[in-house]
């Protein structure tokens, strides 16, 4: 059946079984490879996307349940201050977990423009990073928050 998805500000009509995981549709139908498969179990956060502004696990969310909702993937963050902050802090090793983490960080900054370390850690706790880059990731989100607050006060 045909489902209309609103992804990164664009509408797309996709032909898919409504029980197909959203992640598969994003990656294989819409060729948005930034959202990544890690476990399929809602346990690692590699697949995180925003649905109407809330982080959700795309690996297990059925595409039929997000028809008409606003979906944002990491591809929409190309010009977001988070991206530069992650580069400035060199917050990455293998990098596989990063796209999902950027999504949760974006949701946090949308809600809480200058988050504390504790708020950042709480927002990212659903994400696993096996390389041990967490300290840098936390600093990068702090930096992006500071940068955005600076921009807003100008």
């Amino acid at each position: 059946m045909s489902i209309t998805l609103h992804v990164n500000g664009r509408a797309a009509l996709v032909a898919a079984d409504p029980t197909t995981p959203l992640l598969d549709v994003l990656r294989n139908t819409l060729d948005l490879k930034g959202s990544r498969y890690g476990c399929g179990l809602e346990q690692c956060g590699s697949c995180m996307v925003l649905v109407d502004g809330e982080p959700v696990y795309a690996c297990s969310r059925e595409v039929g349940t997000v028809a008409g909702k606003r979906i944002e993937t990491v591809e929409s963050l190309a010009d977001h201050p988070l991206r530069q902050a992650f580069l400035d802090e060199q917050a990455g090793q293998c990098g596989y977990c990063l796209s999902g983490i950027l999504i949760s960080a974006k949701a946090l900054l949308d809600r809480t423009p200058r988050p504390t370390r504790a708020q950042i850690v709480a927002a990212l706790d659903k994400h696993l990073c096996r390389c041990g880059t967490q300290s840098r990731i936390i600093r990068a989100v702090e930096r992006a928050g500071a940068h955005m607050a600076e921009g807003a006060s100008r």
Partner: peptide, 20 residues
């Protein structure tokens, strides 16, 4: 110096999983 591989990993297409 900054890592060469990091920019791609903040977006799409950096991994073998993404090859088509």
């Amino acid at each position: 110096v900054p890592r060469r591989d990091l920019p791609a990993k903040l977006g799409a297409g950096a991994f073998i999983h993404d090859m088509v």
